[in-house]
């Protein structure tokens, strides 16, 4: 599973990121990389069986605390 994820991410880096990197727009490169690493780390963590906190219960509790229900 993690192997496949890594392959897919690698493919994206190769095909998608390299042209952007050559575009020499620093801001975009950093933005790209940070989003990329964020999502990669999340998938790897999930692949290792770590329970990440989902935003859904948080949003739900906020709405419930507003007392609409």
């Amino acid at each position: 599973m993690i192997l496949i994820m890594t392959l897919v991410y690698g493919l994206f880096l190769l095909l998608d990121f390299i042209p952007i990197y050559r575009g020499k727009n620093r801001k975009i490169t950093w933005l790209y990389l940070s989003l990329f690493i964020l999502s990669y780390s999340m998938t790897v963590l999930i692949g290792f069986g770590v329970n990440l906190p989902s935003p859904a219960p948080l949003i739900k509790s906020i709405i419930t605390s507003l007392g609409i229900f």
């Binding site: 994206f12 989003l35 999340m42 998938t43």
Partner: peptide
């Protein structure tokens, strides 16, 4: 920045990562 296309791939990957564990 004006070119949204470069951001599509990381956004999409992030989308999938979140979709994995949102529920």
């Amino acid at each position: 920045t004006h070119d949204y296309r470069v951001l599509l791939a990381p956004v999409a990957l992030l989308n999938v990562s979140l979709a994995l564990f949102i529920y």
